[in-house]
Structure formats: C-alpha cells, structure tokens
Simulated scan of single mutants.
Amino acid sequence: MAEATQTTKLTHWPRTAKGGGKKACTVEGCKRPYRAKSYCFFHFKKWRQGELPHTRYRVCSKPECRAKVGPKAGLCEKHFAETYKKDAAA
C-alpha cells in the first residue's frame, strides 16, 4: 500500500532576503538583509507607510507635513484648502 505523505500548506509567503542575504539594508545602522527597494522587510514596511525620507508618494511641500499631495499645487488637501480659501475670501 502507498504511504500518505503530509504536506504543509503555506498561508503566506515566507520572508526571504534577496541576494542570498549578502546585501544589507541601506538604512544607516541596520544590518538586516535587504528585501526590496534596498530596504529590509522592516524598513520596507516603513517606506510603504511613508515614514522614511524617500516616500512612496509625493508629499506636501509645507515644512513638517508628510501628507500625500493632492491633485493641485504640490500641497496636501489641508494646506491647499488653507492657502486658496484665504485668497478667495479676500
């Protein structure tokens, strides 16, 4: 009789480093192997969320504002409304 073989089904992709683990993350002080966009899995997640200097999207041109840019003027929706509603009211 044939033996039944057990196989385990993965529920998600395993985190594997690219480059055989020889390349390190480009964030200063991080020694984890890189995964994508020259970041390790931890910093890649931070990049996707917009928490690193080189963000995934264009960000507002106002100082200290890291919000995603709206369709006009290089400003987020909040700063666009503040800037142009003042001009329209005057």
Score class of each variant (00 low, 15 high):
Glu64Gly: 04
Cys25Ile: 14
Leu75Phe: 01
Thr7Gln: 06
Ser61His: 07
Trp13Met: 09
Ala73Pro: 00
Lys85Trp: 03
Arg35Tyr: 12
Thr83Ala: 05
Gly19Phe: 13
Glu28Phe: 13
Gln49Tyr: 13
Thr7Met: 08
Cys60Glu: 03
Ala24Met: 07
His43Lys: 08
Tyr34His: 15
Cys30Gln: 03
Cys65Val: 06
Ala36Gln: 14
Val27Trp: 06
Ser61Phe: 00
Arg48Glu: 13
Glu77Lys: 07
Gly29Met: 07
Pro63Cys: 08
Thr7Trp: 08
Gln49Ala: 15
Trp13Asn: 12
Lys86Cys: 02
Leu52Ile: 14
Pro63Thr: 13
Thr83Asp: 00
Thr8Met: 10
Tyr84His: 15
Lys9Trp: 10
Arg35Lys: 02
Ala2Gly: 08
Val27Cys: 11
Arg66Cys: 01
Cys30Asp: 01
Pro33Lys: 13
Lys72Gly: 02
Cys76Gly: 05
Arg66Asp: 02
Ser61Gln: 05
Pro33Cys: 12
Arg56Leu: 13
Arg48His: 15
Gly20Ile: 15
Val59Trp: 04
Lys85Ile: 09
Arg66Tyr: 05
Ala67Asn: 01
Cys60Thr: 02
Glu82Val: 09
Ala2Glu: 07
His12Ile: 09
Gln6Cys: 03
Lys46Tyr: 13
Gly50Phe: 04
Ala4Cys: 05
Lys37Ala: 15
Cys76Lys: 02
Gly21Asp: 13
Glu64Ile: 01
Val59Cys: 10
Ala67Trp: 03
Glu64Ser: 03
Lys78Ala: 03
Arg32His: 12
Pro63Val: 12
Cys60Arg: 00
Glu82Gln: 07
Trp13Thr: 14
Glu64Pro: 00
Phe41Lys: 09
